[in-house]
Protein backbone atom coordinates (compact mmCIF):
# COMPACT_ATOMS: atom_id res chain seq x y z
CA UNK A 1 0.00 0.00 0.00
CA UNK A 2 2.73 2.41 0.98
CA UNK A 3 4.43 1.90 -2.38
CA UNK A 4 1.21 2.55 -4.27
CA UNK A 5 0.53 5.69 -2.25
CA UNK A 6 4.09 6.83 -2.77
CA UNK A 7 3.96 6.31 -6.51
CA UNK A 8 0.59 8.00 -7.01
CA UNK A 9 1.81 10.81 -4.77
CA UNK A 10 5.01 11.17 -6.74
CA UNK A 11 3.15 11.19 -10.02
CA UNK A 12 0.76 13.96 -9.07
CA UNK A 13 3.55 15.65 -7.13
CA UNK A 14 5.57 15.91 -10.32
CA UNK A 15 2.82 17.92 -11.92
CA UNK A 16 2.58 20.20 -8.87
CA UNK A 17 6.33 20.52 -9.02
CA UNK A 18 6.11 21.65 -12.64
CA UNK A 19 3.58 24.34 -11.74
CA UNK A 20 5.69 25.39 -8.77
CA UNK A 21 8.78 25.49 -10.97
CA UNK A 22 7.00 27.73 -13.46
CA UNK A 23 5.74 30.06 -10.72
CA UNK A 24 9.06 30.23 -8.98
CA UNK A 25 11.02 30.85 -12.19
CA UNK A 26 8.93 33.90 -12.99
CA UNK A 27 8.91 34.99 -9.34
CA UNK A 28 12.70 34.96 -9.26
CA UNK A 29 12.80 37.10 -12.34
CA UNK A 30 10.40 39.76 -11.18
CA UNK A 31 9.20 39.20 -7.58
CA UNK A 32 5.75 38.82 -9.12
CA UNK A 33 3.49 35.86 -8.53
CA UNK A 34 1.83 35.11 -11.81
CA UNK A 35 -1.80 34.23 -11.13
CA UNK A 36 -2.34 33.83 -14.87
CA UNK A 37 0.06 30.88 -14.92
CA UNK A 38 -2.79 28.38 -14.67
CA UNK A 39 -5.29 29.66 -17.17
CA UNK A 40 -2.78 30.65 -19.84
CA UNK A 41 -1.67 27.02 -19.64
CA UNK A 42 -5.27 25.82 -20.03
CA UNK A 43 -5.64 28.04 -23.06
CA UNK A 44 -2.60 26.36 -24.61
CA UNK A 45 -4.07 22.94 -23.90
CA UNK A 46 -7.33 23.97 -25.57
CA UNK A 47 -5.41 25.20 -28.58
CA UNK A 48 -3.85 21.79 -28.89
CA UNK A 49 -7.35 20.34 -28.74
CA UNK A 50 -8.40 22.64 -31.55
CA UNK A 51 -5.40 22.04 -33.76
CA UNK A 52 -4.64 18.39 -33.19
CA UNK A 53 -8.17 17.04 -32.75
CA UNK A 54 -10.62 19.32 -34.50
CA UNK A 55 -8.42 20.36 -37.36
CA UNK A 56 -6.53 17.08 -37.48
CA UNK A 57 -3.08 18.66 -37.64
CA UNK A 58 -0.17 16.37 -37.07
CA UNK A 59 0.96 16.36 -33.46
CA UNK A 60 4.50 17.09 -34.65
CA UNK A 61 3.31 20.43 -35.93
CA UNK A 62 0.60 21.21 -33.41
CA UNK A 63 2.62 20.49 -30.26
CA UNK A 64 5.61 22.73 -31.06
CA UNK A 65 3.21 25.46 -32.17
CA UNK A 66 1.30 25.22 -28.90
CA UNK A 67 4.52 25.41 -26.90
CA UNK A 68 5.57 28.41 -28.92
CA UNK A 69 2.19 29.98 -28.22
CA UNK A 70 2.59 29.32 -24.48
CA UNK A 71 6.04 30.86 -24.59
CA UNK A 72 4.67 33.91 -26.36
CA UNK A 73 1.85 34.26 -23.87
CA UNK A 74 4.34 34.17 -21.00
CA UNK A 75 6.54 36.70 -22.74
CA UNK A 76 3.55 38.95 -23.33
CA UNK A 77 2.56 38.68 -19.66
CA UNK A 78 5.93 40.05 -18.65
CA UNK A 79 5.77 42.84 -21.22
CA UNK A 80 2.35 43.86 -19.91
CA UNK A 81 3.63 43.82 -16.34
CA UNK A 82 6.55 45.99 -17.36
CA UNK A 83 4.12 48.39 -18.99
CA UNK A 84 2.28 49.19 -15.73
CA UNK A 85 2.82 52.84 -14.78
CA UNK A 86 4.48 53.15 -11.31
CA UNK A 87 4.28 49.40 -10.78
CA UNK A 88 3.77 47.80 -7.39
CA UNK A 89 2.78 44.36 -6.13
CA UNK A 90 -0.86 45.33 -5.90
CA UNK A 91 -1.13 46.32 -9.54
CA UNK A 92 0.92 43.36 -10.76
CA UNK A 93 -1.21 40.86 -8.88
CA UNK A 94 -4.43 42.38 -10.18
CA UNK A 95 -3.08 42.51 -13.73
CA UNK A 96 -2.20 38.81 -13.71
CA UNK A 97 -5.59 38.03 -12.15
CA UNK A 98 -7.20 39.97 -14.95
CA UNK A 99 -5.27 38.00 -17.54
CA UNK A 100 -6.29 34.81 -15.80
CA UNK A 101 -10.00 35.55 -15.86
CA UNK A 102 -9.65 36.83 -19.41
CA UNK A 103 -8.19 33.51 -20.57
CA UNK A 104 -10.84 31.65 -18.58
CA UNK A 105 -13.55 33.70 -20.28
CA UNK A 106 -12.06 33.13 -23.72
CA UNK A 107 -11.92 29.37 -23.15
CA UNK A 108 -15.48 29.25 -21.85
CA UNK A 109 -16.78 31.44 -24.66
CA UNK A 110 -15.21 29.33 -27.38
CA UNK A 111 -15.33 25.81 -26.02
CA UNK A 112 -18.08 25.99 -23.40
CA UNK A 113 -17.75 24.79 -19.85
CA UNK A 114 -18.32 21.08 -20.54
CA UNK A 115 -15.45 18.69 -20.09
CA UNK A 116 -13.62 17.63 -23.21
CA UNK A 117 -11.01 14.99 -23.59
CA UNK A 118 -7.77 15.41 -25.38
CA UNK A 119 -6.67 12.10 -26.89
CA UNK A 120 -3.14 12.86 -27.81
CA UNK A 121 -1.58 10.35 -25.50
CA UNK A 122 -1.29 6.70 -26.47
CA UNK A 123 -3.86 4.43 -24.88
CA UNK A 124 -3.05 3.51 -21.33
CA UNK A 125 -1.64 0.05 -20.77
CA UNK A 126 -1.09 -1.56 -17.46
CA UNK A 127 2.51 -2.59 -16.97
CA UNK A 128 3.28 -5.14 -14.33
CA UNK A 129 6.51 -4.87 -12.47
CA UNK A 130 6.82 -7.64 -9.95
CA UNK A 131 3.80 -7.24 -7.73
CA UNK A 132 3.07 -3.64 -8.68
CA UNK A 133 1.11 -2.34 -11.59
CA UNK A 134 1.82 0.86 -13.39
CA UNK A 135 -0.17 2.77 -15.92
CA UNK A 136 1.95 3.42 -18.99
CA UNK A 137 0.48 6.90 -19.45
CA UNK A 138 1.41 7.80 -15.91
CA UNK A 139 4.94 6.59 -16.55
CA UNK A 140 5.20 8.72 -19.66
CA UNK A 141 3.96 11.81 -17.90
CA UNK A 142 6.29 11.13 -14.95
CA UNK A 143 9.17 10.77 -17.39
CA UNK A 144 8.33 13.96 -19.26
CA UNK A 145 8.04 15.91 -16.03
CA UNK A 146 11.35 14.65 -14.68
CA UNK A 147 13.13 15.30 -17.97
CA UNK A 148 11.71 18.79 -18.12
CA UNK A 149 12.80 19.61 -14.59
CA UNK A 150 16.27 18.25 -15.24
CA UNK A 151 16.38 20.14 -18.52
CA UNK A 152 15.50 23.44 -16.89
CA UNK A 153 18.01 22.84 -14.11
CA UNK A 154 20.84 21.93 -16.47
CA UNK A 155 19.92 24.66 -18.92
CA UNK A 156 19.97 27.34 -16.24
CA UNK A 157 23.24 26.15 -14.79
CA UNK A 158 25.31 25.30 -17.82
CA UNK A 159 24.03 27.13 -20.87
CA UNK A 160 25.13 30.67 -21.70
CA UNK A 161 21.53 31.91 -21.81
CA UNK A 162 20.78 30.13 -18.54
CA UNK A 163 23.68 31.83 -16.83
CA UNK A 164 22.54 35.18 -18.18
CA UNK A 165 19.06 34.56 -16.81
CA UNK A 166 20.48 33.59 -13.43
CA UNK A 167 22.76 36.60 -13.33
CA UNK A 168 19.94 38.99 -14.10
CA UNK A 169 17.74 37.39 -11.46
CA UNK A 170 20.33 37.51 -8.72
CA UNK A 171 21.84 40.90 -9.35
CA UNK A 172 20.07 42.95 -12.00
CA UNK A 173 22.40 45.94 -11.65
CA UNK A 174 25.56 43.91 -12.05
CA UNK A 175 24.02 42.00 -14.94
CA UNK A 176 23.17 45.26 -16.67
CA UNK A 177 26.78 46.37 -16.28
CA UNK A 178 27.83 43.16 -18.02
CA UNK A 179 25.69 44.15 -20.96
CA UNK A 180 22.87 41.69 -20.29
CA UNK A 181 19.42 42.98 -21.16
CA UNK A 182 17.68 42.29 -17.87
CA UNK A 183 14.21 43.01 -19.20
CA UNK A 184 14.72 40.53 -22.03
CA UNK A 185 15.92 37.90 -19.59
CA UNK A 186 12.87 38.55 -17.45
CA UNK A 187 10.56 38.14 -20.42
CA UNK A 188 12.45 34.99 -21.35
CA UNK A 189 11.91 33.58 -17.84
CA UNK A 190 8.20 34.27 -18.13
CA UNK A 191 8.17 32.64 -21.56
CA UNK A 192 9.87 29.51 -20.24
CA UNK A 193 7.47 29.51 -17.30
CA UNK A 194 4.59 29.68 -19.75
CA UNK A 195 5.95 26.70 -21.63
CA UNK A 196 6.46 24.65 -18.47
CA UNK A 197 2.92 25.53 -17.39
CA UNK A 198 1.52 24.42 -20.74
CA UNK A 199 3.34 21.11 -20.54
CA UNK A 200 1.97 20.65 -17.03
CA UNK A 201 -1.53 21.31 -18.36
CA UNK A 202 -1.05 18.75 -21.15
CA UNK A 203 0.16 16.17 -18.65
CA UNK A 204 -2.73 16.92 -16.32
CA UNK A 205 -5.33 16.76 -19.11
CA UNK A 206 -5.57 12.95 -19.26
CA UNK A 207 -6.14 12.92 -15.50
CA UNK A 208 -8.83 15.58 -15.21
CA UNK A 209 -9.81 16.01 -18.90
CA UNK A 210 -10.07 19.51 -20.31
CA UNK A 211 -12.37 21.95 -18.64
CA UNK A 212 -11.99 25.71 -18.31
CA UNK A 213 -11.09 25.62 -14.62
CA UNK A 214 -8.85 22.56 -14.94
CA UNK A 215 -5.74 24.46 -13.85
CA UNK A 216 -7.15 26.21 -10.79
CA UNK A 217 -6.37 23.42 -8.40
CA UNK A 218 -2.95 22.72 -9.89
CA UNK A 219 -2.18 26.45 -9.69
CA UNK A 220 -3.03 26.54 -6.01
CA UNK A 221 -1.04 23.37 -5.42
CA UNK A 222 1.79 24.99 -7.33
CA UNK A 223 1.59 28.01 -5.04
CA UNK A 224 1.58 25.76 -2.00
CA UNK A 225 4.59 23.86 -3.30
CA UNK A 226 6.47 27.02 -4.23
CA UNK A 227 5.71 28.58 -0.86
CA UNK A 228 6.87 25.40 0.87
CA UNK A 229 10.05 25.46 -1.17
CA UNK A 230 10.74 29.11 -0.54
CA UNK A 231 9.41 30.72 -3.73
CA UNK A 232 12.87 31.73 -4.96
CA UNK A 233 14.45 28.31 -5.00
CA UNK A 234 13.76 26.12 -8.01
CA UNK A 235 15.01 23.03 -6.19
CA UNK A 236 12.77 23.95 -3.27
CA UNK A 237 9.78 24.34 -5.56
CA UNK A 238 10.30 20.90 -7.10
CA UNK A 239 10.86 19.30 -3.73
CA UNK A 240 7.82 21.11 -2.34
CA UNK A 241 5.69 19.79 -5.21
CA UNK A 242 6.80 16.20 -4.74
CA UNK A 243 6.30 16.38 -0.98
CA UNK A 244 2.87 17.91 -1.38
CA UNK A 245 1.83 15.19 -3.83
CA UNK A 246 2.99 12.44 -1.48
CA UNK A 247 1.46 14.13 1.57
CA UNK A 248 -1.86 14.47 -0.25
CA UNK A 249 -1.93 10.87 -1.30
CA UNK A 250 -1.24 9.65 2.25
CA UNK A 251 -3.69 12.16 3.71
CA UNK A 252 -6.35 10.99 1.26
CA UNK A 253 -5.87 7.36 2.19
CA UNK A 254 -5.36 7.51 5.92
CA UNK A 255 -7.27 10.58 7.01
CA UNK A 256 -9.89 11.87 4.65
CA UNK A 257 -10.31 11.62 0.91
CA UNK A 258 -12.88 14.39 0.43
CA UNK A 259 -10.87 16.96 2.38
CA UNK A 260 -7.66 16.07 0.57
CA UNK A 261 -7.62 19.25 -1.49
CA UNK A 262 -7.86 21.34 1.67
CA UNK A 263 -4.44 20.10 2.75
CA UNK A 264 -2.56 22.32 0.30
CA UNK A 265 -4.68 25.35 1.16
CA UNK A 266 -4.12 24.83 4.87
CA UNK A 267 -0.41 24.41 4.25
CA UNK A 268 -0.28 27.73 2.40
CA UNK A 269 -1.98 29.54 5.25
CA UNK A 270 0.11 27.91 7.97
CA UNK A 271 3.47 28.22 6.23
CA UNK A 272 2.93 31.87 5.37
CA UNK A 273 1.65 32.55 8.84
CA UNK A 274 4.81 31.16 10.40
CA UNK A 275 7.17 32.46 7.73
CA UNK A 276 5.63 35.50 6.07
CA UNK A 277 8.11 35.41 3.21
CA UNK A 278 7.90 31.72 2.53
CA UNK A 279 10.23 29.06 3.81
CA UNK A 280 13.86 29.59 3.06
CA UNK A 281 13.66 33.12 1.78
CA UNK A 282 16.17 35.43 3.38
CA UNK A 283 14.69 38.19 5.44
CA UNK A 284 14.97 41.47 3.64
CA UNK A 285 16.36 44.44 5.42
CA UNK A 286 13.62 46.88 6.30
CA UNK A 287 14.30 50.03 4.37
CA UNK A 288 12.65 53.36 4.58
Amino acid sequence: MVITLLSTGLLIGCLYALMALALSLSYRASEITNFAQGDTASLSAYLLLLWAMNWQWSLYIALPLVLLFAFGLGWMTERLLAWIPDPNHFKSVILTLGLQILCFGIITSIWGSEQQSLHIFPQADLLTLGQWQFNSRDLISFGVAVLLMLGVGVGLRYSRLGLMIQASQQNPTAARLLGISVSKMRALSFGISGMIGAIAALLISPIVSLDPSMMWEPLLKGFAAAVLGGMRSLKGAILGGLLLGIAESFFGYYISLPYKSLLALTLIVIVLWLKPRGLGEAKHQIKL
Binding site: Y27, E31, I32, T33, F35, N88, H89, F90, S92, V93, L97, W216, L220, F223, A224, V227, L262, A264, L265, T266, I268, V269, I270, L272, W273, P276, R277, G278
Partner: peptide, 21 residues
Protein backbone atom coordinates in the same frame (compact mmCIF):
# COMPACT_ATOMS: atom_id res chain seq x y z
CA UNK B 1 -3.93 36.58 11.64
CA UNK B 2 -1.69 35.28 8.85
CA UNK B 3 -2.58 38.15 6.50
CA UNK B 4 -1.32 40.81 8.90
CA UNK B 5 2.22 39.69 8.44
CA UNK B 6 2.00 39.40 4.68
CA UNK B 7 2.26 41.84 1.87
CA UNK B 8 1.53 41.97 -1.84
CA UNK B 9 1.59 38.65 -3.64
CA UNK B 10 1.68 36.50 -0.50
CA UNK B 11 -1.45 38.15 0.84
CA UNK B 12 -3.19 37.49 -2.46
CA UNK B 13 -2.17 33.82 -2.32
CA UNK B 14 -3.34 33.35 1.26
CA UNK B 15 -6.68 35.05 0.71
CA UNK B 16 -7.19 33.02 -2.46
CA UNK B 17 -6.42 29.81 -0.57
CA UNK B 18 -8.79 30.92 2.17
CA UNK B 19 -11.68 31.69 -0.15
CA UNK B 20 -11.31 28.55 -2.21
CA UNK B 21 -10.76 26.53 0.96
Amino acid sequence: IPANRLSGPYLAIVSLAFGIG
